[in-house]
Computed example of a mutant assay.
Amino acid sequence: MLLEAEGVDPATQRSNVTWATFLHSQADAILAMDFIETVTLSGQRQYTLAAIHHARRGVRELGTTAHPTHAWVTQAIKNLVIDLEDAGHLAAIKFMIRDRDAKYPAVIDEILGQAEIRTVLTAIRTPPMNSIMERWVRSLRRELLDRALLWNEAHLRRALREYEQHYNHHRTHRPLQTAAPLHAVPEPLEPVQIERLGIRRRDRPGGVLHEYQHAS
Results as ranks from 00 to 15, higher is better:
G7C: 09
G7V: 09
A11I: 04
T12H: 11
S15I: 12
V17E: 15
V17I: 15
W19L: 12
A20K: 04
A20Y: 09
T21K: 00
L23W: 03
L23G: 01
S25Y: 13
Q26W: 04
A27T: 01
D28Y: 05
D28F: 06
D28L: 07
D28Q: 10
L31W: 10
M33W: 15
D34F: 09
I36F: 08
I36Q: 14
T40Y: 00
G43E: 08
G43K: 11
G43P: 07
Q44V: 15
Q44R: 14
A50L: 12
A51H: 03
H53A: 11
H53E: 02
R56P: 00
R57S: 03
G58S: 11
V59A: 11
R60G: 01
R60V: 05
R60T: 05
E61P: 04
G63K: 10
G63I: 02
T65C: 08
T65E: 03
A66C: 10
H67W: 02
T69P: 03
T69V: 06
A71I: 08
V73M: 05
I82Q: 15
I82H: 13
I82R: 14
I82D: 14
D83A: 11
L84M: 13
L84K: 00
D86T: 09
D86A: 10
H89R: 12
H89M: 08
L90M: 02
A92Q: 14
I93T: 04
I97Y: 02
D99M: 10
A102C: 08
A102K: 15
K103N: 07
Y104N: 08
P105G: 13
A106N: 12
V107M: 07
D109G: 06
E110G: 01
E110N: 07
L112F: 06
Q114A: 13
I117A: 03
I117G: 03
L121G: 02
T122R: 05
R125A: 12
T126C: 14
P127G: 09
P128F: 15
P128K: 10
N130Y: 13
S131G: 13
I132K: 10
I132V: 15
M133K: 05
M133A: 10
E134R: 06
S139Y: 12
R141Y: 11
R142M: 08
E143A: 06
L144M: 11
D146T: 11
R147G: 02
L150V: 13
L150M: 12
N152A: 06
N152H: 13
E153I: 14
H155S: 13
R157A: 08
R161V: 13
E162N: 01
E164N: 07
Y167I: 02
H170N: 10
H173S: 07
P175R: 00
Q177K: 11
T178Y: 14
P181Q: 04
H183F: 07
A184C: 06
P186M: 06
P188N: 05
P188K: 00
L189R: 00
V192S: 12
V192I: 08
V192D: 15
Q193I: 02
I194V: 14
E195L: 05
L197G: 12
R201S: 14
D203T: 03
P205D: 12
G207A: 10
V208L: 13
Q213S: 15
H214E: 15
S216I: 02
